Computed example of a mutant assay.
Amino acid sequence: MAGTSAARVAPSAPAQNGNSHPLSIGQVLARLNPEFPDLSPSKLRFLEERQLITPARTESGYRKFSIADVERLRFILSVQRDHYLPLKVIRGFLDDIDAGREPKLPGGAPANVPSMLPAERRYTRDELVREAGATVLLLGDAISASLIAPSDHYGEDALTVLKALVDLKRSGIEPRHLRGFRAAAERELGLIESALLPMARRKDAGNSAKVAELAREIAGQLEVVRSSLIRSALTKIRS
């Protein structure tokens, strides 16, 4: 079940601090930066301020992270990146896990997302096409429509999009019909950048982490609005 899977990667606070080989902030970054290049000491402190992680402290006040802390961090950063969930939603989910409940992530986001693996799998063009059950032509059309960025190697996002395009093609929807999606995404990005501009100009410590988190919060809220509009339109179609 979703809650059971998440419990393995997001243990309660007492379990986190019981590891006999604690890690420093630098060691945590060394483990997680290959997956999450934007992770920084200020981001870790920001997540601690938001009470998503509770590393142990030495007598001198230095933070020490257990292996369980690292897995909890991996989970938090994964669902942030892959599903644009706001931190308050993630914290509520983890609070339920810590309390022994079995919650589900909103929007159908899986608790055991693939990016919780030590490193995201990368695909060559041929591997991507084969894994998605697509054709080279469909991938080319997706790239032409700016739905997938051209690359020598592709990640899980590209695989997810190409699989969706395979299904959409069966319904007669081609990548060329979705060209407007890129323009819509760029318009949303413009909205986010405009909203963040006043905060981005500040130079205080930890500001970049706050800007990045607020960007995810806004993206998540825009996704809520977009999903609601689509559901409303589907209701009209059924009626």
Rank of each mutant, 00 (worst) to 15 (best):
L214A: 13
L162Q: 01
G108Y: 08
H153W: 15
L128G: 02
E35C: 15
P110Q: 11
Q80A: 02
S151E: 12
E156A: 08
D95L: 04
E49W: 06
L147K: 01
V224H: 08
L138H: 07
E186M: 10
R130H: 11
D82V: 01
V166Q: 05
S42R: 03
I218N: 00
R170E: 15
P14L: 05
E217L: 14
T135R: 09
R121T: 05
G190E: 11
L73F: 00
S42I: 09
A56M: 11
D204I: 08
S194C: 12
R238S: 12
D204F: 07
E127N: 07
A219V: 05
A205L: 06
P41I: 07
S227L: 15
A15C: 09
L168D: 04
L52G: 03
G3L: 07
V129W: 00
V224A: 11
R8I: 09
G26C: 08
A30D: 15
A15G: 03
D69P: 02
R122T: 10
A111W: 01
S42V: 04
A30K: 15
P11R: 03
I90L: 06
E223H: 10
G190Y: 04
L139Q: 02
M199R: 12
P150G: 10
L189S: 07
I25M: 11
R72H: 09
L165Y: 03
D98R: 06
V224F: 11
Q16C: 15
S194G: 14
D167F: 09
G26H: 10
I192L: 06
A164Y: 03
S151L: 08
A15Y: 05
A56D: 04
A109C: 11
D82T: 07
I192N: 10
R31Y: 06
F65K: 02
D95H: 03
R72K: 15
S146A: 13
A7M: 08
E156W: 05
R101S: 08
K203M: 12
F46H: 13
A158D: 13
K104L: 13
A142K: 01
V136R: 13
L77C: 05
R231H: 13
G92A: 08
L178W: 02
G155R: 05
V225G: 09
L117F: 13
